[in-house]
Design a protein around this nucleic acid. Structure first.
Length: 272
DNA sequence: ATATCTGCCTGCTCGC
DNA sequence: TGCGAGCAGGCAGATA
């Protein structure tokens, strides 16, 4: 499931493929994939527009156009983007939900088996990403910023890390990995964290995300990079999907519990 | 305001 | 081997 490092990797891969290219048409094959505007207006507004930059905010991919508008794509669980030639079998993939024709004959494809992914074309990105919390790798993600969002909350810290208004881009994998690295039990009430623990957690979030970006993300069932190169962070996972394996730090058996409906992995000895 | 639950979806794994 | 049940989970929207 793509989280911040995976979306960052997709953005890096798409940049050389798309910047400077123009759109010639937009085709929506599964209507719910397009959140806004409607398909007719999307096509009218995107035709002839050139991609000038590709960015990311949280788990949202931002394709900036020369019109000032931005095409925003959220991969959710199973969404995948690729830039392909006219004869690509991806164009007839049964999971193809949207396809954007480029003026040079190539296509930007969006395949998504589970149909959870969403696409927007907006005048201002705040319409979609306005409520997100700080970018964890930016200087704005300070211990103070995290403290402010945790200190009044009684829910489990694991649940709060998945709240995109607390910090943008962390999902189930990196929440578990960051809590392990910080030595904090996932069920701890958020407001019970000490100042020292919040600093450790903030540093751990940044460290696991950066490590994963450096490895091109985590390759699991639902995430592939556009051109088939493999992310490698699944080889670095310390607790996620390591249930029953010995903890690399202390040797205790990694446990799996449910925290607000989410599978949660942790070391019962290292995390308290 | 905060916390929890449900729906969206389909492919995969598991147990019989 | 076949098959149905349950699970996976990000996020919006509803409910308590």
């Amino acid at each position: 499931m793509p989280e911040l490092p995976e979306v960052e990797t997709v953005a890096a891969d798409l940049r050389p493929q798309l910047i400077g290219s123009r759109f010639a048409a937009a085709h929506i094959h599964w209507p719910r994939t397009l959140a806004a505007p409607d398909a007719e207006l999307l096509d009218a507004q995107i035709v002839g527009r050139e991609v000038i930059a590709i960015g990311r905010r949280g788990k949202y991919l931002l394709v900036h156009l020369d019109s000032g508008q931005t095409l925003i794509i959220h991969l959710r669980m199973t969404g995948q983007l690729a830039v392909v030639a006219d004869d690509s079998p991806l164009l007839s993939d049964p999971h193809l939900r949207a396809a954007f024709d480029l003026a040079d004959g190539r296509h930007l494809t969006f395949t998504d088996a589970r149909k959870f992914g969403r696409i927007w074309l907006v005048d201002a990105i705040e319409q979609v990403v306005g409520k997100l919390g700080p970018e964890p790798l930016d200087w704005t993600f300070t211990p103070e910023a995290l403290t402010e969002r945790l200190q009044t909350r009684r829910v489990a810290i694991k649940a709060l890390l998945l709240d995109q208004t607390v910090v943008a881009g962390v999902g189930n994998i990196y929440a578990d990995e960051a809590l392990f690295m910080a030595g904090i039990h996932p069920l701890r009430p958020a407001a019970s964290l000490t100042g020292d623990e919040i600093v450790r957690l903030r540093d751990a979030i940044r460290a696991v995300l950066q490590e994963s970006i450096d490895a091109r993300g985590t390759l699991l069932r639902d995430y592939r990079t556009p051109y088939g190169q493999d992310g490698a962070y699944q080889n670095h996972l310390r607790v996620y999907q390591q249930t029953g394996q010995p903890c690399a730090r202390c040797g205790a058996s990694i446990e799996r519990i449910r925290v607000t409906q989410r599978g949660t992995h942790f070391c019962p000895r290292c995390q308290s």
